[in-house]
């Protein structure tokens, strides 16, 4: 069964590109454009993995992360945090809030795919 990935980013072009790449690798895609959508879609669509961008309008990725980690049905979902400049501080904070992994921008496609596979591998799926 195809794994479902939720992409959370307010930039349409990035979303379209990532979606194209992931579809070419047999993943099913769901999209959210802001923090509110992210949370509601996470609960509604029950994705197997979430790609979460840090900066969005109406709420930061970190707060979405914290929120999702507090809800029973999203507490274990692997979340890969996308951040423009992964500084030590951001990394620490994201890890504290429960991020599974990080990726910076611009990212290497193979790197991203590798991390996604790793996140699924970790869960033993």
């Amino acid at each position: 069964m195809a794994k479902k990935i939720l992409i959370v980013d307010d930039d349409q072009e990035i979303v379209m590109l990532i979606a194209a790449r992931l579809r070419a690798n047999q993943y099913e895609i769901v999209v959210a454009n802001d923090a509110v959508q992210a949370i509601s879609k996470a609960h509604k669509e029950k994705p197997d993995l979430i790609l979460l961008d840090n900066r969005m309008s109406a709420g930061s990725g970190l707060s979405v992360l914290a929120n999702l980690r507090q809800a029973m049905d999203t507490i274990l979902t692997p979340i890969i945090f996308i951040t423009a400049y992964p500084s030590e501080k951001i990394k620490e904070e994201a890890l504290e809030k429960g991020a599974t992994d990080f990726i910076g921008k611009p990212f290497d496609a193979n790197d991203l795919l590798g991390k996604i596979r790793k996140a699924f591998g970790e869960r033993g799926l």
Binding site: I14, A20, R21, A24, A109
Partner: peptide
């Protein structure tokens, strides 16, 4: 940082996808 990187990410991924035959 964010403003510069987002267009760069888009460019990179666009070109990369074409190169990869997608």
């Amino acid at each position: 940082s964010h403003e510069l990187r987002t267009p760069m990410a888009i460019m990179q991924e666009c070109v990369s996808q074409v190169l990869d035959g997608l």
